[in-house]
Each structure stands twice: as structure tokens, then as C-alpha cells.
Design a protein around this nucleic acid. Sequence first.
DNA 1: TCTAGGATCGGCT
DNA 2: GCCGATCCTAGAT
Length: 183
Amino acid sequence: MEVARELLGRLLLRRTPEGLAALRLTEVEAYLGVEDAACHTFGGRRTERTATMWGEAGHAYVYLIYGMHHCLNVVTVGDGHPEAVLVRGGVAVAGEELMLRRRGGRRRSLADGPGKLCQALAITRDDDGADLCTPESGLWIVDDGLRVAEGEVLRTPRVGVDYAGEAAAWPLRFVWSRYAGGR
DNA sequence: TCTAGGATCGGCT
DNA sequence: GCCGATCCTAGAT
């Protein structure tokens, strides 16, 4: 929850042969590991897919959903505690034209959803395990000093986890209110 | 080996 | 607001 809150306003950068692109994060969700029924590692599940969630904090956990979209997560705790933050949305601060091309010219919904965000940044399963703390990975997060005021942080239940029982109601979705609206 | 279903998106009504 | 696309993953057999 702490990392989710702190990621709002941070920059997610992406370097590929096509060029540099950057998003300022506006929407994230916390997934609290083995005790969270909405989390892929609920109940201690440990599979090939979720292997990176069980690994070192600060790395990317990328998975495919609905057979066609990718979702990017930031692995948090580490040390046997497989928790993560799902990156759900951001606004362009660099490389907007490049991201537009990848998104098929959809300027109004460039990266306001986890699948769209991955498409805009060309993130796939190949990026699973990437070290998000160094530019050398080509996918990394930086703090440029900007801070999102506490009064601008909106908290709601997470999206699409109705099946998760009690956990479905936990207010683990963090949204930068000035960018709320797009889902 | 089989099967059900999913941390979504976009087009259509 | 509804619904189909599309295929991997995980659990059951």
C-alpha cells in the first residue's frame, strides 16, 4: 500500500530502439500477497507465471490477461512476501508520438488502463523480471521530485476483482484525482 | 491431457 | 451499457 501510494506521480520510462517514452503514473492498485484473494500469489500459490513475484523487489512482473493484453506490476516486499503494485494508468510526458503510433492513434485513451499502458510502452512478457531501478533494463521508474498532495489521492476498491470475496472491497486502488475519470 | 475462466479493451447499440 | 475477441494459466483428471 505504501509503494502504491508513493508510485503516484512518479515517472515510468521506456527505452527501445524506437526511442524514449515516459508516463507519469496516475493510477495503481496494491496486491497484498498470500492473504489477498485477488492476488496471483493468494494462499501461497507459486507457479511459473508468478515466479518473479516471489523474487526480488523492484522488478517487473508482467503477465498476459484475456489472451490478448499485458499487465505491468512492480514487485514490492520481496524476501518471501510476494506482493506487487499493478500499474493501471499514466499520462504522457515524453515520446507521445511514439506511444500514439503503438496505440493506433488513440490520443484520448493513450494509457488509461493496464493493457493500454503496456501497449503504449511496448511491454510484453519479455519484460518480466526487468529491473525497474536502472535505465539499463530499458524499463525503469524515477522520482523527479514531483509530489502528489494527500488531498489529491483517491482510494477505491480494485477493478475487476469481484470474485475475491472480502478482499474485493478493500480500498487498494489509488488514483490521482485530477486524472480520475478514465475508468 | 482437458477445461474453465480471467487484475481488459474497443466496437456497437 | 453490453458483448465478443482470444489464449494462456492453473487446477483437475
